[in-house]
Structure formats: C-alpha cells, structure tokens
Design a protein around this nucleic acid. Structure first.
Lengths: 162, 162
DNA sequence: TATTGTTATACTCTATAACTATA
DNA sequence: TATAGTTATAGAGTATAACAATA
C-alpha cells in the first residue's frame, strides 16, 4: 500500500503532516484564546494544582522563555491567567489561571475533544491505542535529559560528507 | 499515570512535542542537505518514478509555493535535483533527483532509519503499530479535500464567545 | 556570581502581491 | 482569461543580547 520511495513513508513527514492538520483545525476551535493552541496549552498548565514557573513552562511547551513572556502578557491582559511571585523564591513567578481562564479552558476543552474525535475517527477503534503510544513517545522526547541523548545519537549517525 | 489536567494529555501537545523532538534529532542527521529535513523530504519526492510538479510538491510538503522555489534553488545549486520542463505543459516543471542526489538521499535514508529506531525504541514492539496508525492519520489529514472538512468541523464546534 | 524574568533588537521564516511564461 | 512558477516586499514568528531583580 505505502510506497516506500515516497515521502509518505517518512516518519518526519507523518509527524509534520499530522501536526499541521491538527494545528489547522485546532486554530479554528481555539481562535478565541490569545496565542491559539499555544495559549490553550499554557492555560491548561495554569489550571494545574501545582502551577509551574516560566522556565518550566517554556521547556514544557517547547518555546523560548522570551516568547513565553509575550504569550503570558496576552493571556494576562485578557484576564485569563495571573503571575504569582513564588514566596520561597521571589525571582520565580507561578502562572495561575483565573476563574475566567478556568471556565474558558473547560469550555474549549470540550469542543477540542469533539474535534479530535472527528480527526481520529479514521483510525477507528485503534484511536485510543494511537493516543496512548503517542503520549509515551511525546513524554519521552520532551524530557530534558533525553534531549542530550537524541543529540549524541544523531551526531554519531551523522558520518556523511558535509 | 497520565494527569488529565496537564498539557501532557493534550493531543496537540503530544503531536507538537513529538514533532519537535524528531525535528531536532533529524536536523543533526540531515544537516548535510540544504533545507534540512524539508530538503530531505523534497529529495525523497524527487527520486520518485513519477516526479511531481512544484504545486503538487508544495501541497504534499505543507509549504507555500514561493517557499518551495527557494528550497529547490538551494538543492539545485548543490547539484542534488534539477528542474525538468514538462513536455506536455511547459509551464510545469518536474523536480527530479540527480545521481548525486539519489546517492545522498539513500545514504541519509539509512542513517535516518537508524535514528528513528532509537527514537521509537521507547514504544517497544508497538513501534510498527504506531507508525502504521500515524501513516493513516497523516495521509488522511494531508489530503486536500479533507482540509475543507476539517475547517467546517472546527467552525461548527467554535460556538464560544469571541 | 548565578538564576529568573523582561525588554530591545536582529534574524529567520513565511506569506502577499506583482510579474513572466505558457496554456 | 487562467494557471505554473518566479521575484520582491512585507509580515509574523523566533532567537540573541543586555538588563533588573533576587538568590
């Protein structure tokens, strides 16, 4: 079925195409949140019982800390989150969702899940299996200590002419 | 195990984190190809027995046609691909890999597969299952006609306050 | 001195519009 | 007139570096 000589068989293409397709649909569902899907993810983190500081959030969301500052600014101006100085270390700021932010997140969470079901419908009963495997992979690749491993692996494989 | 209140349970985050992790590792393996992973994907398409024109390639790679022009320029200057005017319609140009391009693609293909095996090792024996499901999803989301469906679905769900 | 976060700046990537050539 | 591709320009997104506050 799959032609191995075409890009459709490339793992990088599969991940990219899936991500682009998801982002396009999610962009519509989450257009009411500053920053779109990224703002939604930040809002989600801000509803945690143990809110993270900005450095941790930047690493978790895969963005630069300077970019995160602007993103938080937008969400804060919209009244969705607030910066709370950490009493134990006043350099750090915990990002916490407001009541308005929690309500909006909950509402969009429901809509997002419905959209995801439409997207994953093509996988049939294997959709939950796929999500479980993807979750394992994503957590593995996003762990800070694994980033080092990936680089060393990649470099050891990169023995081609430059 | 998975905390549903955190972003790690979000499908968008999973796809994004996996894509970022893969792109980072692939960037090292494919640093010798102009355009990195994207250049590799174009090179892969250019090795097809039925080479595509630029419009089709742009849609397949998920990039704008104007961006594709520059990407092809870089690969052509490196002697990896060439533009062949379509005899049937001289407006169109088929992108075909040179012998040098095919050799480089084959070499990097091997290295890339080894790297992917390292990345997917965390999934154990389910790695092939994951790739099959991801392939189905990616092809589905990348099909042009489905783009329309996604938008209409998303818009019908976007009944929130703006 | 090191770390967290902010700000200003510069850079990269991408998209918009106008253009050429073919149909 | 419409389409494929190119070019120039503008825009969005991102990263780099210098800074202030705190440890």
């Amino acid at each position: 079925m799959a032609d191995e000589t075409l890009v459709e068989g490339d793992l990088g293409w599969m991940l990219g195409a899936s991500f682009r397709g998801y982002a396009k649909a999610a962009g519509h569902v989450l257009s009411g949140i500053p920053g779109g899907p990224r703002g939604y993810q930040l809002l989600t983190e801000a509803t945690s019982d143990t809110p993270a500081n900005q450095g941790t959030l930047a690493q978790r969301l895969g963005i630069d800390r300077t970019v995160l500052t602007y993103l938080i600014d937008d969400l804060e101006q919209a009244g969705l989150v607030e910066r709370r100085p950490d009493p134990a270390d006043r350099r750090q700021r915990r990002i916490v969702a407001t009541a308005k932010g929690r309500a909006l997140r909950e509402d969009r969470h429901t809509a997002l899940r419905a959209m995801e079901a439409c997207l994953l419908a093509v996988l049939g009963e294997d959709a939950s299996t796929f999500q479980a495997l993807l979750c394992t992979l994503a957590r593995h690749l996003n762990s800070a200590d694994h980033h080092i491993d990936l680089c060393s692996i990649a470099e050891s494989l990169d023995d081609s002419p430059r």
